[in-house]
Design a protein around this nucleic acid. Structure first.
Lengths: 218, 218
DNA sequence: TCAAAATATGAGTAATCCTCACATTTATGG
DNA sequence: CCATAAATGTGAGGATTACTCATATTTTGA
């Protein structure tokens, strides 16, 4: 149940796209520091209320330096989304890799949903970014790409343990299952904790039931 | 399949909350006109790009008058969300009212999803508002309240045709099914039309399957 | 050692939301 | 029909914030 959560607290520039990539070590460290300061501010007051000047001030960096690496405010959010997204994907890959039977895969999905939910509860920045999606089109597309990738991982695992199932249909099913996972997390953290837990449980039942059906149906 | 869609194009002040409710007929008409102008602008360029001055200019109204009725920009979006939400709810109520058996209810849900999808495709403002959710907390809460209400309608219908099922569990199941419907619509309109249609079909299958299970399982 | 490349700076511009003191129109009681 | 109150309308301007750019500083490399 309560497995050790992945640690995503320290941002590195791996997986992150910038307006200009720093060449020197000094600037590399500065950019990472900017992002970590942004994380702190988002955790404190939310990405909506966070201002660029605040990030610059907290990072002890001029506003111009900030804009050297991030073309606009949402670029910071996007950079963080890339970071967290990559970590989540790694997590999902790990979780699914061991399953050799359909039942084992269903169990793995079950556990992954728990981890995911715990992550949403533990990381205010993930909560903020995923809640605040819709702010710009790019972020929405990133979330969709994320479900697509995690769906592909699940679908791949499914076809491995259930070779008879139609790959294309499995892909669509798994894409939707994963996308609904994100919707369920967003919903669960927006309501009272009791109801949130019940909704996550319900989602787990549905997800596993659909995965099982996708792997059984011919 | 292609049932006549509900007409939501004309906004009335019914169901809409304002900073100050107009007493006189003149102002009532002016406020409705402001909202209809906002609709036009959102359809043209999206709610993000729409500015308050533009709405005022297009409605041939001073910026002060606009703010007399809408405390801030997102209040306009919220007012429109209330309008469309109320219409959708009416639509769902109608669609579910006739079903007397579980199978009939499943069919009704199937058709409702088609109507809902067609509505998303036909009304750019619905698309915009539901895509752009996340901009502010209130709008997110409104969307959740909307799923909750439509879920309650479905759950009520379910308990009517399947009296044996646990009402509380049915409520949670239906809430989630409806919430996933919104997520599925958002997703479907964000991807290529072909894939969108496939995703909606998959959602339909999942939703109906879960509804059927909820009405069958003891 | 010195020129070129990379990086850093922050005052200033532009855009937009929103307020408020005052003007105008409509309703109402005598 | 008038006078007073209530409702509604106005738009210049304050305040905030994202973002630019000309210039200054630091690092690199030949």
């Amino acid at each position: 149940m309560s497995k050790n959560l992945p640690d995503m607290s320290q941002v590195t520039l791996e997986h992150i796209s910038l307006r200009r990539m720093p060449n020197q070590e000094r600037s590399r460290a500065r950019v990472e520091h900017m992002l970590n300061c942004a994380i702190q501010l988002i955790a404190e007051k939310g990405s909506e209320a966070m201002t660029m000047s605040e990030v610059a001030r907290l990072a002890d960096v001029s506003i111009g330096s900030l804009y050297q690496y991030f073309p606009d405010k949402s670029a910071i959010i996007r950079a963080l989304a890339e970071h967290y997204g990559a970590e989540c994907l790694r997590c999902i890959k790990d979780g699914l890799s061991g399953a050799e039977t359909l039942d084992a895969l269903c169990d793995a999905l079950n556990e992954l949903i728990d981890v995911y939910y715990a992550l949403f509860q533990a990381e205010p920045v993930i909560r903020d970014i995923y809640s605040g999606i819709g702010a710009d089109k790019t972020l929405r597309d990133m979330e969709i790409a994320e479900s697509r990738k995690s769906g592909a991982l699940l679908s791949e695992a499914l076809c491995r343990v259930a070779p008879d199932c139609d790959p294309e249909r499995a892909a669509t099913d798994c894409f939707l299952i994963m996308h609904f996972g994100e919707a369920a997390m967003r919903l669960a953290i927006s309501v009272e904790p009791d109801e949130g837990a019940k909704l996550v449980d319900t989602y787990k039942r549905m997800a596993v039931s659909e995965l099982h059906r996708a792997g059984t149906e011919r």
